[in-house]
C-alpha cells in the first residue's frame, strides 16, 4: 500500500496543484485519509501537513474516517427532502444501527449525507458505491441493503 502511495507521489511530484489528485488516488488506495497518510503525502509533495490537512478538511469528498465496504451516500437536497428522504435515512440508520458518518461494526456499511447527487428527478435518491437507487421509500430499504449482505 505504501509503495503504491509512493508511486502516486512520484508521479505528481513537482507539478503545481497536485495535492488534490494525489489525495484522491490515496483515498482510493487506502479507503480514507488518516493523518499518517496525509503526512506522507505532505512530505512527498514538499508541502506541510497543515496545508494537506486543510485541503482534506475542506472537500467533503475526502474523509479522514474509514468507510465501510459499501458506502451509502444519501441526498438531503431540496427535492429529496420534500420527498421525505429523512424517513428513508432514519430507516437506514435503524437498520444498520449506526449514525451518519459512522461505520457498522462488521465494517460493511457506512452512511454519508450529500447535498445533491444531480438526479433530482429520481428523488428521494441514494447511491451505494456506484449504484444509484431512485424513488426510495423506507419500505425498500431492507431489500436494497440485502443486495449487499
Amino acid at each position: 500500500m505504501l509503495q503504491e502511495i509512493d508511486r502516486v507521489i512520484q508521479q505528481y511530484k513537482g507539478k503545481p496543484g497536485s495535492s488534490i489528485p494525489v489525495l484522491q488516488r490515496c483515498q482510493e488506495i487506502v479507503g480514507y485519509l488518516p493523518p499518517e497518510i496525509q503526512k506522507i503525502v505532505a512530505r512527498g509533495l514538499k508541502t506541510s501537513a497543515a496545508e494537506i490537512h486543510s485541503v482534506v478538511s475542506f472537500y467533503s469528498f475526502f474523509t479522514m474516517k474509514p468507510r465501510g465496504d459499501h458506502n451509502i451516500r444519501i441526498c438531503l437536497g431540496t427535492a429529496c427532502y420534500v420527498k421525505r428522504v429523512e424517513e428513508v435515512l432514519s430507516k437506514i440508520k435503524d437498520n444498520l444501527k449506526i449514525d451518519v458518518g459512522e461505520v457498522t461494526e462488521d465494517k460493511k456499511f457506512s452512511i454519508e449525507t450529500v447535498r445533491c447527487l444531480g438526479a433530482c428527478g429520481l428523488a428521494p435518491v441514494m447511491v451505494i458505491d456506484e449504484e444509484t437507487y431512485g424513488a426510495m421509500t423506507p419500505k425498500k430499504v431492507p431489500e436494497v441493503l440485502a443486495e449487499y449482505s
Binding site: S48, A50, H53, S54, S57, F58
Partner: peptide, 9 residues
Amino acid sequence: RGALGLIGR
C-alpha cells in the same frame, strides 16, 4: 514552515 492551516470549511 507551514505549521498552521485553515482547517475545515
